[in-house]
Design a binder for these strands. Structure first.
Length: 568
RNA sequence: CGGGGUAUAGCGCAGCCUGGUAGCGCAACUGCUUUGGGAGCAGUGGGUCGGGAGUUCGAAUCUCUCUACCCCGACCA
């Protein structure tokens, strides 16, 4: 490709509305342009990268035995009524109506569509297991789209759905997808981590997420510093930090803590460690309010809390007035003694003794509180967020925290959808049996942003070899005037093109500095600078976008040299 | 959906307070010079000042209203 035949529109200035580096660089390099909130046009340049991502995914999915297909993006509402997921997805569903007032959703995911397809198409256990996938545009009406294509409303996703007769077979394909995802991300040259995850609105039993590691990631992931354990913080098991409950040594007493409402304030006022305190949070339950108690220095995991059968979903904290009505004080003085509602405590809290909590009396706290003697809890369960320094749940090492961008999520759905939609096959005894199902998503457009987030410097993008829009850039100095430069460049261009190298020749009439910094921004991995100055000495210059130091290569050997670099 | 903000040329912004011929930088286009690190000079084109209504002799500017977008929060594969 020659730049004169291509469409390159780069910008020197960072766009005002782009917050994170990948968004800024994608706009500056001219890969994407915004059409509306969470809606982006992919330019020919950006689309090249998107296609590379797609192609790697496609090749590896095919290699795993999955079958590519294509489903409609527009889905009849009735389909969603069958599984009752309209409420689960809520406002994220983009609804529309046709001329006959029939209602549709623009597909945010395709469990219903594939299950509908499979229940008619797959009737015998002999057709199993089978794994279908597609690469397609989805729409999720995010409350707040942001960060460019990182969290857009319309986006491209690879979604795969597998069907099985048994849970064992599902498990097998699930593991196969885990290794396939690992291969895909490794081929893209990304640093990533597979972690245990919460399955959210998709549902099912087990699920794992694949995170590309980057400080700008929206998710926190916890991992053991010396074991295999890794989990999204939402899912990360938080073990009890106190092995056995000590016998009470302190007397129960009430102290005045005027105006001290936060754990921090009270701990400072009483000159005690926050670890000696407990935090009592009142939330709406299925049947009246429920108290959730975590240690003073811990955070409630809202995801874990929302999963408790006693707690209403979505999680909803009681309003100031409701609290006052129930316990007769403000939020800052709630405690566990004589609290008139079920009390669910975190595992660590259950083993605490001589602790401090609110007195359920405005401006007062209780010290020397002990379970059994002074208060009772209803149940103990893991409801706090794990934090750095906690022992790893698998007993090996301690937990560390990192930020990640979720680019893939695999689920073992079991029979959730097949039961709801009556998707059955006949087994070898001729009996109808509900299908076991797995689903495997990968954010194609998000991966492009994630790759940049992880691979850039002050001058622009540094594409991993597998994702670069072009492998080689030929950068002639004074191409328009110098016969020698033009001839050398054209010959090299022809040679590389002939052997199938993805090469771009910058034949624009621009000054050298402009050209060089443009290609730094674009991040083309291999760059060859061709100018009279070096040609007169019989060589051209080569630089790799990552290392940036210029290497003199004998003119006659550059094609071979490049081939060698490309195969590394 | 709650809170905060913005809307003027392709991009970044000034002008608004105090109403009176719509400007600057970058980008684009033409010409000349320059050609190994985002060039210089000269010139050109491009705007119903987000939409609507009102006040006024006169509105980018004041008032009302609608819309879009951005940020924070809750939500989230």
């Amino acid at each position: 490709m020659r730049t004169s035949q291509f469409h390159l529109v780069t910008r020197k200035e960072t766009p005002q509305d782009a917050e994170i580096i990948s968004h800024q660089l994608m706009i500056r390099a001219g890969m994407i342009r915004k059409l509306g909130a969470g809606l982006y046009t992919w330019s020919p340049l950006g689309y090249r990268v998107l296609r590379k991502v797609e192609q790697i995914i496609r090749e590896e999915m095919n290699a795993s035995g999955a079958l590519e297909m294509l489903m409609p993006a527009v889905q009849p509402k009735e389909l969603w009524q069958e599984t009752g997921r309209i409420e689960d997805f809520g406002g994220q569903l983009l609804a529309m109506t046709d001329r006959a007032e029939r209602e549709y959703f623009f597909g945010p995911t395709h469990e219903e569509v594939i299950t509908e397809f499979v229940r008619d198409e797959v009737t015998s256990y002999k057709q199993l297991p089978i794994n279908f996938y597609q690469i397609q545009t989805k729409f999720r009406d995010e409350i707040r789209p942001r960060f460019g294509v990182m969290r857009s409303r319309e986006f491209i996703m690879k979604d795969a759905y597998s069907f099985h007769l048994s849970a064992e077979s599902l498990e097998e394909t699930y593991r196969l997808m885990e290794t396939t995802y690992t291969t895909i991300l490794a081929r893209m040259g990304l640093h990533f981590r597979c972690v245990l995850a919460d399955s959210g609105a998709i549902g099912g039993s087990g699920s794992q997420e694949f995170h590309v590691l980057a400080d700008s990631g929206e998710d926190a992931i916890m991992y053991s510093d010396s074991g295999e354990y890794a989990a999204n913080i939402e899912k990360c098991e938080a073990v009890s930090l106190i092995a056995d409950r000590a016998v009470p040594t302190a007397e129960l007493s009430e102290v005045a803590t005027p105006g001290k409402k936060t754990i921090e304030d009270v701990a400072e006022f009483l000159k005690i460690d926050q670890k000696q305190m407990v935090k009592t949070l009142l939330v709406a339950g299925i049947d009246g309010p429920v108290a959730l108690v975590v240690r003073g220095d811990h955070h409630l995991s809202e995801v874990k809390a929302a999963h408790l059968p006693e707690v209403a979903t979505p999680l909803c904290f009681l309003e100031e007035q409701e609290v006052r009505k129930l316990v007769g004080c403000d939020v800052g003085s709630i405690g566990v003694k004589d609290l008139n509602c079920p009390i669910i405590v975190d595992l660590t809290v259950a083993n605490m003794s001589d602790f401090v909590c609110g007195a359920n009396k405005e401006g007062h706290h209780l010290t020397g509180v002990n379970w059994q003697r002074d208060a009772e809890f209803t149940q103990q369960v893991d409801i706090r967020e794990a934090q750095e320094g906690d022992p790893s749940p698998d007993g090996k090492g301690t937990l560390k925290q990192a930020r990640g961008i979720e680019v893939g999520h695999i689920f073992q759905l079991g029979d959730k959808y097949s039961k709801a939609m009556n998707a059955v096959v006949l087994n070898d005894k001729g009996q109808a049996q509900a299908l076991q199902m797995g689903c495997y998503g990968m954010g194609v457009s998000r991966l492009v942003a994630a790759a940049i987030e992880q691979n850039h410097d002050d001058n622009g993008i540094i594409w991993p070899a597998a994702l670069a829009p072009f492998q080689v850039a030929l950068l002639p100095m004074n191409y328009q005037k110098s016969v020698q430069v033009k001839k050398t460049t054209d010959e090299l261009y022809q040679k590389l093109t002939d052997i199938g190298v993805d090469v771009i020749l910058d034949d624009r009439k621009v000054r050298p500095g402009f050209m060089l910094s443009d290609f730094e921004l674009l991040g083309i991995p291999h760059q060859v600078i061709i100018g009279d100055r070096s040609l007169d000495e019989g060589h051209v210059e080569y630089r790799h976008r990552k290392k940036m130091d210029k290497q003199k290569i004998e003119h006659a050997k550059i094609a071979d040299f490049l081939q060698q670099q490309l195969s590394l």
